[in-house]
Design a protein around this nucleic acid. Sequence first.
DNA 1: ACAATACATTCCTATATGGGAATATGTCAA
DNA 2: TTGACATATTCCCATATAGGAATGTATTGT
Lengths: 117, 117
Amino acid sequence: MARAATTSDPFNAVAEPRRRDILAFLAGRERSVSEIVAALGLEQPSISKHLRVLREVDLVRVRREGRQKLYRTNAVALRPLHEWTGEFERFWRDTLNRVKERAERSTAGASEPESEG
Amino acid sequence: MARAATTSDPFNAVAEPRRRDILAFLAGRERSVSEIVAALGLEQPSISKHLRVLREVDLVRVRREGRQKLYRTNAVALRPLHEWTGEFERFWRDTLNRVKERAERSTAGASEPESEG
DNA sequence: ACAATACATTCCTATATGGGAATATGTCAA
DNA sequence: TTGACATATTCCCATATAGGAATGTATTGT
């Protein structure tokens, strides 16, 4: 078996660097496909395919405007990823604090008890 | 071409659900491979392969303890993902605020002019 | 040295892409 | 309707897995 379909999983959808570029480019601002093509420097079909993936996990929204289609990042769909990674924040803070404490101890001399966090 | 190698990219590494499970299981706590196998219910070789991927992007750290190897999540390696998704936070907050305002307006009565984009 | 335990790696296979090229679909202008 | 423009989809192919099975390697105990 290969990896889970990107189509069903936002984690998978943003695993592709180009798609992250697209999401950043479309954040807070509508853009036509042509503009994305120009900005990203990929072929139009590639962009369309990436946009499709993003659409299917609701990471972007579209609306038609004449011949064009205007895409925009649906930022809230990134929230689960932000929250999932956020679960680990206290752990990396612990790590960073330990590093910091160690640094301070070796700088200040080894007498003071550290009371951080 | 297929997707970029998971080996070089933490975004790719966490795109796999099993690997997210492993990271959660190893957060803040060392565990032997056997324990991971027992907890995740996958074959030992599969676990070892996932662990290798996670190691290569520094999402886990190992140390040997006799015959066992003790793994632990290196949470700080998730920080870039947290920060990347965090870039979008203000956008989804805007969205949620608009939704909220709209709800409040329609609850409080429909006297105010709507000037939404 | 030899056996047992704990992991890691290799081989094989089915599947999921991602990009390029060609083609199809949709919309507007004349 | 015809033509041009803007996107989307399909076909083809090379590559990157993920899991299963078998095998290799490291460490401890006797």
